[in-house]
Simulated scan of single mutants.
Amino acid sequence: MTIKVSKFQEIKLRKPAPKGVAVYGEPMAGKTTFAGKSDKPLFLSFDGNAKLAGYNAVTPTNKSDVISVIEQAEEYGYKTIVMDTVEDMAQLLETEILEKYNADNLKTANGGYGAGYSEFNNNFTEIVNLLSRSELNVYYLLRARQTEDEGLVIVLKEKLFSIIGGYSDALIEINNKHEAKWKKKRYDWDDKTLPAPLNNIIDPAKAKAAKLAELGL
């Protein structure tokens, strides 16, 4: 079928609510609890902890499981998929490839010459693409570690984080006080118009501006 172009219309810019949200913090900082406040979430809980905590959750054991859950979620009334965690999903995909080719690492898997890495990256991107094309909201939960120089640092490999970041509308940090802070966001939303839990996020820039205004600066 040939795609049809509609007639020109005057542009009316919008600020759509976030569809993909990346959330990072140290273990036990409250990432799962935070994402659990989203609209009808279904957890892809690779460690099983979300299910133990009482959330609607499944524990995939391979790539096909992950894809099947995403494809079924809307049919069963879910509005949000929570990837808990992205690192765990990456490990699952890597392990599946290593077992498939009886290899010790991705470098030698699938005949070597980087074919194992290529297969892994394709599988990872396929899942993220599937989520982005769906009508589901997505929370990508990411582990972080505390450093002296840089504060909280995301553990996920930079290349994989770039893929997640490319399909996310916001990046949120959760510290060990369970405080959620905006780190990056696609639009300057009015937080009151956003759905939970995004309607109660600390915005450091706005907080600083308000404090300066209070001091008359």
Rank of each mutant, 00 (worst) to 15 (best):
S132E: 11
N123D: 15
Y101W: 04
L106R: 00
G116V: 02
Y117P: 12
E99M: 13
Y140C: 01
Y140R: 12
T108Q: 09
N122L: 08
E126C: 04
S118V: 05
Y101M: 09
A109W: 00
T125K: 12
N122K: 15
G114P: 01
L130K: 14
S118W: 05
R133N: 15
Y139L: 02
Y101R: 07
Y140I: 00
K107C: 07
N105T: 11
S132C: 09
L142K: 03
E135F: 15
N123F: 11
L136V: 09
E99D: 00
S118K: 15
A115I: 12
S134M: 00
F120M: 13
G112T: 07
T125Y: 11
R133W: 10
N137Q: 13
Y140M: 13
S132N: 14
N102H: 13
Y101D: 01
Y101I: 01
S118M: 00
F120W: 13
Y117V: 07
Y140S: 02
E126K: 10
T108G: 08
N102I: 02
T108D: 03
Y113Q: 00
L130D: 08
I127C: 14
N122I: 04
T125E: 15
Y113D: 06
F120T: 08
N137R: 10
A144R: 06
N122H: 07
R133I: 15
R133Q: 15
S118Q: 10
A115F: 05
T125A: 15
E126H: 11
Y139C: 13
G114V: 06
E135K: 08
K107Q: 11
E96R: 05
E99I: 05
I97Y: 10
E96Q: 02
F124D: 14
E96C: 07
N137P: 01
N110A: 05
E119P: 05
L98A: 10
V138M: 03
Y101S: 02
A115S: 03
Y117N: 06
S134G: 09
R133G: 09
S134D: 03
L141K: 02
I127K: 04
R143Y: 14
L141I: 08
N121Y: 11
L131C: 14
S134R: 08
G114Q: 10
N129A: 03
R143C: 00
G112P: 05
L131V: 02
Y139T: 07
G111W: 12
N137C: 13
N102D: 04
T108L: 03
F120A: 08
I127S: 13
E99P: 06
T108Y: 04
N105Y: 01
E126G: 07
L106M: 03
E96A: 08
K107D: 02
S134W: 05
Y140D: 08
V138H: 03
G112D: 09
N102K: 11
A103F: 05
D104S: 02
V128E: 14
